[in-house]
Design a protein around this nucleic acid. Structure first.
Length: 187
DNA sequence: AACCATTGCAACCGCAACATC
DNA sequence: AGATGTTGCGGTTGCAATGGT
């Protein structure tokens, strides 16, 4: 799983989890040269990764402004709200949540919110089923005749105690920011 | 303690859109 | 106008961590 050889001409391409050394190389290179054409960047930096892989790693984990973990109740509400409006437009949703990435939101949706909705299913409210159908495939974008009741209202129905406005935001926001040290040693 | 099932998440893949030549 | 390369997006997979028995 660790190393593989790409099909084109003996160019060794690493796959799988990034190492700390690779992260540091990428961070340092971008710090010195800025973001550029990712394929060229990967070569110039001496990384045996595809440009695509470098871009993903940078955007999702290494960028200084990326917040990781601890999705707040406010953010969860917003995700539900926006998903009810836009469907699986993860990058669009992510732009409304500073520091959050489309990948994180997508994962969060699949692992947490879908589970939440499924748990609500036994109550056999038709709205849950329609939401699940839509969520598992995709919304037809641009239609603004969205559901009158949103996910957030459903979620609040199920978790009335969970949302306490403005209680947790400041500290968690700060904790969400990374450093190379806590990226690799404190998690 | 050992095994199995489930969960959460990082990373990859395929595709479409866009840019450049 | 077509070929080629790059970027961005959404879906999916693989695997480590965790929980349950």
């Amino acid at each position: 799983m660790d190393k593989k050889t790409s099909s084109n001409q003996d160019v060794e391409v690493r796959k799988g989890p990034w190492t700390m050394e690779e992260d540091l190389i990428l961070i340092n290179y971008i710090a010195n040269h800025g973001e550029g054409v990712w394929n060229a960047l990967a070569r110039s930096a001496g990384l045996k990764r595809t440009g695509k892989s470098c871009r993903l790693r940078w955007l999702n984990y290494l960028r200084p402004d990326v917040r990781r973990g601890n999705i707040t109740p406010e953010e969860q509400m917003l995700i539900m709200e926006l998903h009810s409006r836009w469907g699986n437009r993860w990058s669009k949703i992510a732009r409304q949540l500073p520091g959050r990435t489309d990948n994180e939101i997508k994962n969060y949706w699949r692992t947490r919110i879908q589970k939440l909705i499924r748990q609500a299913e036994p109550y056999s409210n038709p709205k849950y089923n329609s939401i699940l159908d839509d969520a598992s495939t995709s919304y037809s974008c641009g239609t603004n005749d969205g559901p009158p009741e949103t996910y957030s209202s459903i979620w609040l129905d199920e978790n009335p105690e969970a949302f306490q406005p403005s209680s947790t935001m400041p500290t968690e926001s700060i904790e969400g920011f990374w450093s190379v040290e806590n990226l690799w040693f404190n998690e």
